[in-house]
Write a protein that binds this DNA or RNA. Structure first.
Lengths: 342, 342
DNA sequence: TGTTCTACGTATAGCGTTCTACATTTTCAT
DNA sequence: ATGAAAATGTAGAACGCTATACGTAGAACA
C-alpha cells in the first residue's frame, strides 16, 4: 500500500472500473445504478456483485453534472427550536429506505442569510429543497421553485401553484387554545407573538385568536404583544406585560421555547402558574412534558409534517408538477400550566 | 420569457458565458474565481463586472469534479441536544466571510447511520468534515481522515496524527463538579453516565469523577450509573436511583438535557432540589438559566469549540498535514440546583 | 542587441457520471 | 418462415468547471 500524496489523489472506485470488473459497458452499470429500463436480471446481478466487491459508491457531483445528486436540502431558520428536531425526525424516517440523503443548513432566522443558504443549496445541485418557517416573500419562493422542486413547512401559501406546502391549521390551533383557556376559567387571555412582517403562520394564529376571542364574547380582552426573535427581547416584553397594569390571566405564546422563557420570567417574579398566570405554548415539544415545566401546548405533529414534506418533495423530484397542500389538524395537550383555576 | 419544460432545463449562467461577456478566455475566469496567480488587476475587474452583471454563481458539482466544492460537512449525532446549537453558531461565525458553506447531517446517535452519513458526505465531495461526538473507533476515523480533512469535536484522540481534535478537558470538568458539590456540602455524589463503549469524553469524565472522589476522601461513595441514550431509559434509571436505598445527595449528569430530565423525575417524586438532591449538568446550555431549572452546569464554551474546529478544518483543507489538538478549560457555573445545603 | 526572466493569457484535456442514439438479439404474431 | 416489435446492450457526447502546459509580450540584464 504505497502512501500517495497525503489527502490528495483519492483511490476512489469509478463506474469504469466496475464496468471492467463485470465485463460490461459503463452505460450498463449506469443503468443498474439508476434502476433504468433495459437491463436483464443476469446483467443486474453481475453488476451488483462487482459493485459490492469493489465497494463502489457513485460520486454525487459527477451524477449532478448530468442528472440527479440524490441529495435533498433542508433550510432551518433556527436550530435551537426543539420543534424542528421533530420535523427532522419525520423527514429522515421518510428518507430511510431511499437513496436520497438529507443535508441541512441554518439561516439563523435572518433574511439575507436564508437567501444565501438557498442559493448555496441550489449551487450544490440539491434535487429538491424543503424550507421550514421561511421568511421569504411569495415572489422569491416562486423564483426558487422555478429552479428546484420546493416544499415549505410552516408557511401558508395554499394558493401556490408552483410549490407544495405542509402546515397545520394554525388558525384552528389558536382557536383551540382560546377555547381551552376559557373552559378552564381564564378570560383575560393575551397572546405573545413574533414581530415579523412575513410570517404567515403567525398571522393565521393571531387571526384565530382574535376571532375566537370575539366569538366567545371576550373581544375586549384581546391583547397581542409582538416581540422580536431574541430571547432577551422576549424576556423584556414578558416582564413588561406581567409587571404592568392589567396583567393577563393567561398568556398564549407562539412557540414552546418562548413559553418556557415566560415560565422562567413568571417564576422569577414570584407568580404562581397557573393560578396567577396560565401559559400555553405551541408545538408540544418534549420539554413540555418535564415536570418543572408542565406546559400546555398545541400539538401539530412535527414528525408527520416532516414525513409528508419529504414524500411530497420526492414526488416532485420524480416529476409531479401540480401543487399539493397538506394540512394537519392540531390539538391541545393540556398540562399543569393551564389547569382550571380554583 | 418562454416557459421551458417545468423544473428541467435550467437557465444557469456558466463560466463560458461570463468569459464571452468579458471578452476573455474561460481559463481566465476560472483563475479569477479561484483567486489564482497570473491575473492582472484590469482583467480581474472586467471579469468581476461580468460575473455581477450576469449574476453568475459557480456550480459546486462541476468544481468538485476537478477541485474543491467549498462545502464543509458536519456530522451531528443528535439534533435535540441544545449544546450542539452553540457549537454550530461558532462554526457558522467562523465561516461567515469565507466562501465555504456548511452542510449538516444527523446520525441519530446510531453507529451504522453515522458511518453511512460520513460516506454520503464524502460522496458529495465535501472539502472537509467535522464530526461531533462521534462513536466511531479510531481506525475508522483514520480511514475517513485518509479521504478527507477531518476534525472531531468531543472525542479524545490527542495522539492522532491524521486528524485534528477539539475538546474541553473533560477530566478536569468532572473534577471541578465534584469539588463544587463537596464545597457545597454534598458528599454522596453519584454520576449518571451514558452506556457507550466508544465515548472517550464519557470515559474521561468518569475518570475525573473517580479520581477526584478518591482524592477528596469520598471514594466509598463512588457510584456510576450508565443509561442508554433514550429519554425513556434515562427516566427509568433515574427513578430507580432516586427511589432505591441509599439515594445520593447529588447527581452529576453527563449532559444538561439529561439533567433536565432528572429534575423532572425528582420533581415528580416530590424531592426538593437541591435540599433532597443536588443536580449538575454539563455544557451550560441556555435551558440551565431558566428559573424553573436553575441548573448548575459545566461550561465548555461550545461556540469557541465550533469556531476553532472550523479554523482548523480550513487550515487542513488548505494543506496543513500535521495534526493539531485544541483544548478548552471548562468551568462550573453554579446555580440553584446545587446551592449549599442548609 | 541579444538573452533571460517574469507576468499575463489561452487552449484544452480531463473529472465521473448520464443519456441519447443506435446496434444487436430475442420474442411473438402471423 | 417472416417481419415487426420488444428487449437488451454499447458507444460516445455532453455536463461546467479546474489545472496543466504552453504561448507571447515586455522588462531587465549583460
Amino acid at each position: 500500500m504505497a502512501e500517495t500524496k497525503p489527502g490528495k489523489k483519492s483511490d476512489r472506485v469509478t463506474i469504469r472500473e466496475v464496468a471492467e470488473d463485470a465485463g460490461v459497458s459503463v452505460a450498463a452499470v449506469s443503468k443498474v445504478l439508476r434502476e433504468a429500463y433495459g437491463v436483464s436480471e443476469s446483467l443486474r446481478a453481475k453488476v451488483r456483485a462487482s459493485m459490492d466487491k469493489l465497494n463502489y459508491r457513485p460520486l454525487a457531483s459527477a451524477r449532478g453534472m448530468r442528472g440527479q445528486t440524490y441529495t435533498l436540502g433542508l433550510v432551518l431558520p433556527d436550530i435551537r427550536n426543539p420543534f424542528f428536531a421533530d420535523i427532522l425526525a419525520g423527514v429522515n424516517s421518510a428518507l430511510e429506505r431511499t437513496q436520497y440523503q438529507l443535508l441541512m443548513g441554518t439561516s439563523h432566522s435572518q433574511g439575507p442569510a436564508e437567501e444565501a443558504l438557498v442559493e448555496a443549496l441550489i449551487d450544490r445541485q440539491m434535487d429538491g429543497i424543503i424550507m421550514i418557517g421561511t421568511t421569504e416573500y411569495m415572489d422569491r419562493l416562486a423564483v426558487i421553485a422555478r429552479q428546484k422542486p420546493l416544499v415549505t413547512i410552516g408557511h401558508h401559501a395554499q394558493s401556490s401553484e408552483v410549490f407544495d406546502t405542509v402546515n397545520n391549521d394554525d388558525q384552528l390551533g389558536a382557536r383551540l387554545v382560546v377555547k381551552h383557556l376559557l373552559g378552564n376559567g381564564f378570560r383575560n387571555i393575551a397572546m405573545l407573538s413574533l414581530a415579523s412582517t412575513t410570517s404567515t403562520i403567525l398571522s393565521e394564529r393571531e387571526l384565530g385568536y382574535r376571532r375566537e376571542m370575539i366569538e366567545q364574547g371576550v373581544g375586549q380582552n384581546i391583547n397581542i404583544v409582538r416581540a422580536p426573535q431574541t430571547l432577551r427581547e422576549v424576556q423584556i416584553a414578558a416582564r413588561r406585560l406581567l409587571e404592568g397594569p392589567n396583567r393577563p390571566e393567561a398568556l398564549f405564546c407562539w412557540t414552546d421555547f418562548i413559553a418556557l422563557e415566560v415560565i422562567s420570567v413568571a417564576t422569577e417574579l414570584g407568580l404562581s402558574i397557573p393560578d396567577d398566570l396560565a401559559i400555553v405554548g405551541y408545538d408540544n415539544t418534549m420539554y413540555c412534558d418535564f415536570a418543572q415545566n408542565g406546559l400546555t401546548s398545541v400539538d401539530q405533529s412535527g414528525e408527520l409534517l416532516g414525513l409528508q414534506s419529504a414524500r411530497l418533495l420526492i414526488e416532485r423530484v420524480r416529476g409531479r408538477t401540480e401543487a399539493e397542500h397538506y394540512v394537519v389538524t392540531p390539538r391541545v395537550v393540556a398540562r399543569k400550566s393551564s389547569k382550571r383555576r380554583n
